[in-house]
Deep mutational scan, measured.
Amino acid sequence: MVQRGSKVRILRPESYWFQDVGTVASVDQSGIKYPVIVRFEKVNYSGINTNNFAEDELVEVEA
């Protein structure tokens, strides 16, 4: 279970941040499909630095 402030590695192959490390900004408990919002240092092609992920697409590298 990841929690706010954890450092996580992204396992979603189609993601711009695949294999990159980001910080968990928040975790939604309402039961949505992609409840974990992760914030990154670098921006993607659209200038965005956050994205939603499912918990099984993340691996915690640092608490």
Results as ranks from 00 to 15, higher is better:
4 R>E: 12
59 V>D: 09
27 V>M: 06
17 W>R: 01
4 R>L: 12
57 E>Q: 02
60 E>C: 13
3 Q>H: 11
57 E>R: 01
63 A>E: 12
43 V>M: 13
32 I>T: 13
62 E>Y: 11
13 P>N: 06
10 I>W: 04
10 I>Q: 01
61 V>T: 05
41 E>V: 09
45 Y>I: 12
39 R>A: 09
21 V>E: 04
52 N>E: 08
62 E>Q: 11
7 K>P: 01
17 W>K: 01
48 I>D: 13
1 M>G: 14
43 V>K: 14
3 Q>N: 08
50 T>D: 04
20 D>T: 09
17 W>P: 00
46 S>T: 09
43 V>W: 11
14 E>N: 12
18 F>S: 04
43 V>I: 09
52 N>K: 07
35 P>M: 11
17 W>E: 00
25 A>W: 11
32 I>D: 08
35 P>L: 11
42 K>T: 14
59 V>I: 12
35 P>W: 13
39 R>C: 14
45 Y>W: 13
42 K>E: 07
5 G>C: 11
30 S>Q: 07
13 P>V: 14
47 G>H: 04
22 G>K: 02
37 I>S: 13
41 E>K: 08
57 E>L: 02
17 W>H: 01
38 V>L: 00
27 V>S: 04
7 K>W: 07
6 S>Q: 10
40 F>I: 02
48 I>E: 15
12 R>P: 06
51 N>I: 07
21 V>L: 10
8 V>R: 02
33 K>H: 06
63 A>H: 12
30 S>V: 04
6 S>W: 09
35 P>R: 11
49 N>I: 05
10 I>S: 00
26 S>G: 13
20 D>H: 12
31 G>M: 09
11 L>C: 10
2 V>T: 05
60 E>T: 13
22 G>I: 06
37 I>R: 14
22 G>C: 06
56 D>F: 12
42 K>V: 07
43 V>S: 14
26 S>H: 14
16 Y>I: 03
55 E>I: 14
59 V>F: 09
42 K>C: 13
32 I>K: 09
12 R>D: 06
10 I>A: 01
6 S>M: 15
29 Q>S: 12
62 E>D: 12
54 A>Y: 05
50 T>N: 04
6 S>A: 13
5 G>W: 02
39 R>E: 12
15 S>G: 02
29 Q>P: 12
61 V>S: 02
54 A>F: 04
35 P>G: 09
2 V>G: 03
54 A>C: 08
27 V>N: 03
25 A>C: 15
9 R>L: 10
29 Q>A: 11
6 S>H: 07
27 V>P: 01
1 M>N: 12
54 A>D: 08
24 V>S: 00
37 I>K: 15
30 S>F: 06
24 V>N: 02
29 Q>M: 13
8 V>H: 04
3 Q>F: 06
55 E>P: 14
46 S>Y: 14
38 V>Y: 00
32 I>P: 06
2 V>I: 15
1 M>S: 13
22 G>P: 03
48 I>V: 13
52 N>R: 12
4 R>F: 05
39 R>H: 09
43 V>H: 12
40 F>Q: 00
17 W>L: 02
51 N>A: 15
24 V>I: 05
3 Q>V: 11
39 R>K: 12
57 E>H: 00
3 Q>M: 11
60 E>V: 15
41 E>G: 07
58 L>A: 01
18 F>M: 01
